[in-house]
Amino acid sequence: MQGGEDGGPASLDRTEVIEPSVGIFWGVPDGGRTVLVTDHTPLTEAEVYGDCLTHPRGHHEVWEAWRKLGATALRRCGLPPAIVSHEYEAFPRGRVVYMREPALFTLYADRRLQRPETIADILQLFGLNGQTHTVRSDAHYRTLS
């Protein structure tokens, strides 16, 4: 599941091949399981931020746009309705950036999202299978609850 590149929600067919992307993500409960929701930008359209290429939108901005849609519209778009009743910091989250030197994708993620199967899903969703990457923790993406 993902948000569209225009900031609005959209569904992602997991068999769809996407080009390498940067962006933000959350692990959100839905029907007794945790699903990944994302908002991403193709690397070819990413913003320059120092030595990195990054996604132009932040967690708060995207989350609030999704919340305004309401539960019914979110579900129609393939996004969990739990988004409506929680703040963006309530669920584990992270960000994918591209370091131009040394040509490396970095996944900053809450430790709860650093399980091998979850990292594999993030790599798939961001088109990073086969790309050089690393996974790191960052206090900014730590969920307190």
Rank of each mutant, 00 (worst) to 15 (best):
R57Y: 09
A139K: 12
K68F: 07
H86F: 10
R14Y: 08
G8V: 11
V84Q: 12
L36Y: 04
F105R: 00
L79C: 09
M99N: 06
F25Q: 03
G50L: 12
A46S: 10
Q131K: 10
L107H: 00
D39K: 04
G7V: 07
R67F: 03
A65K: 15
P29Y: 11
T41M: 10
P80M: 01
R76C: 02
E19G: 04
V96K: 00
P80V: 02
I83A: 04
P81M: 06
V37S: 03
P20N: 05
W26R: 03
L128D: 03
I119T: 12
M99K: 06
T72K: 13
T38W: 02
C77V: 00
E45T: 04
A109Y: 12
H140T: 11
I122L: 13
Y141A: 01
H55I: 01
L113T: 02
E89R: 06
R76G: 06
T38G: 03
D51G: 13
R142V: 15
T72V: 14
E101G: 07
R75F: 04
G70S: 05
S85T: 15
V17N: 12
E87Q: 12
A65H: 13
L43E: 03
Y88N: 10
D121I: 05
H140L: 12
D121E: 15
T15W: 01
A10M: 10
F25S: 01
R14H: 09
V48R: 01
G58S: 07
R100L: 11
H60N: 11
A65L: 15
G8M: 15
T38S: 12
E47V: 14
V17W: 06
A10H: 06
A90F: 05
V28L: 10
R136N: 13
H40S: 15
S137T: 14
G50F: 09
D138S: 13
I18H: 03
Y88H: 15
R67N: 05
I119C: 05
T34Y: 11
R93S: 05
R75M: 07
H86R: 10
D6G: 08
Q131A: 14
G94C: 08
G50R: 07
T118C: 08
T38E: 07
V62F: 06
R95H: 10
F91H: 08
L36K: 00
G130I: 12
G7Q: 09
G70R: 03
S137V: 11
C52P: 05
V35H: 04
P92V: 01
I24E: 01
A90H: 09
L79P: 11
Y98Q: 02
Y141N: 04
M1S: 04
A65W: 14
H59I: 10
G127F: 05
V22T: 03
S137R: 14
V62K: 00
I119W: 07
G70L: 06
D39R: 08
N129S: 08
P116I: 02
D39G: 15
T118E: 12
T44W: 00
I119S: 05
E47W: 08
M99G: 03
V135K: 02
W63V: 14
I18V: 15
V96W: 00
V22A: 00
G94K: 04
E47S: 13
P20A: 00
G32C: 13
L36W: 02
S145W: 13
E47L: 14
V84K: 12
G23K: 02
M99E: 10
H60W: 09
Q114K: 09
T132A: 14
Y108K: 05
M99V: 14
Q114E: 13
P20F: 00
E61L: 11
E47I: 11
